[in-house]
């Protein structure tokens, strides 16, 4: 059987990832004792990719549906402080986690209702809630970082598994991979997934075909909120059980970049889960590699920016060549 178009769309991001990894492995700075690609570094990159990765999963859905969620980073912060505050209040951890997921979902549904009910352009609607949710996060946390005590199963989500276990990667990373697989199946094998693609590709047609576009859109933004809640929990882990109102500042842009590097189209209708995850890893690997190679921070930013532009240009060229 012939490879489907979705497989083709992954070629560019995958090649990009291999090239980035290759460039950094090829050089070995004199002051570094180890090579670039070690199992330790792979695990580290996987862990660092988890937050952007899980966010990119959510962002993939909304971008395929032809929308955007600029409030993602703020929802992440709101969720992380909610978790810290509720744990500090002495709530049982499972309840606190459920609460956080609920907050994320609610924030997403608010975005969805703004887009469908008030007919705001997604960019504007989520630009507004980006500020508003950030404000709520600062209000909940009284503009301070909140240290909380979390049970081990929650606080070690992103920790490296003990060397004697066969787990290889942190639990959180496995969680991202499993969620990614589930999401990929939902997008390709369910009626909901089909509708998400249809709305992003041609909303008028979707409406004409009797699809309840507003319902699907609210569901999409709600789902994004859920993914951002998980990203918030990861961030809480990353800061050693701390909820920070400044968490995830600007992170929505990294998530969007990951989706776009992975072949997603901001005009909707195109995008893939695996591509977005590859995009997230590529970005982390880049940042990590730049540190390894001793590239200065300002230079890093220029390089990463350039790579995003190159990735999108190449992807478009490949798409039109096919």
């Amino acid at each position: 059987m012939r490879a489907g178009p979705w497989l083709w769309s992954l070629v560019a991001p995958f090649v990009g990832l291999v090239v980035v990894a290759g460039i950094f492995s090829a050089q070995k700075p004199l002051d570094k004792p180890t090579r670039f690609l070690t199992s330790t570094r792979m695990a580290l990159v996987a862990k660092q990719s988890a937050i952007v990765g899980v966010g990119a999963l959510g962002m993939t859905i909304v971008i395929i549906a032809g929308g955007i969620d600029l409030s993602a980073g703020s929802v992440l912060a709101l969720c992380s402080v909610t978790l810290a505050v509720s744990l500090k209040q002495g709530w049982p951890a499972p309840i606190a986690v459920l609460l956080v997921l609920g907050v994320g979902l609610l924030a997403g549904v608010v975005n969805g209702l703004l887009v469908t009910g008030l007919r705001l352009v997604p960019f504007i609607a989520t630009l507004g809630t980006m500020l508003a949710f950030r404000g709520v996060a600062e209000w909940v946390s009284e503009q301070k970082k909140i240290q909380a005590d979390a049970p081990a199963w929650l606080s070690t989500l992103l920790d490296r598994p003990p060397s004697d276990s066969h787990q290889l990667l942190p639990t959180g990373v496995w969680l991202v991979l499993v969620l990614g697989a589930v999401l990929a199946i939902v997008l390709s094998r369910t009626v909901f997934g089909r509708y998400v693609f249809a709305i992003g590709s041609n909303e008028a047609t979707a409406r004409l075909c009797g699809i309840r576009v507003p319902v699907v859109k609210v569901a999409v933004y709600g789902l994004v909120g859920l993914f951002m809640a998980l990203a918030g929990i990861f961030d809480f882990n990353d800061l050693n059980s701390q909820g920070s109102p400044t968490a995830g500042l600007g992170l929505e842009l990294s998530m969007i970049a990951a989706v776009v590097i992975g072949g997603g189209s901001l005009s909707g209708g195109r995008g893939s889960v695996l591509g977005s995850l590859i995009g997230a890893v590529t970005m982390t690997l880049l940042r990590n590699g730049c540190v390894y190679a001793g590239v200065s921070d300002p230079m890093q930013k220029v390089i990463i920016g350039g790579i995003i532009l190159a990735a999108v240009t190449i992807d478009r060229a490949l798409a039109s060549a096919r």
């Binding site: 590709s201 041609n202 047609t205 699809i211 209708g269």
Partner: peptide
């Protein structure tokens, strides 16, 4: 009225 990114089959069955 078609969704250009979707396959022929998906478009025929849309909705």
């Amino acid at each position: 009225n078609l969704a250009p990114d979707l396959s022929v089959e998906a478009n025929i069955l849309l909705g």
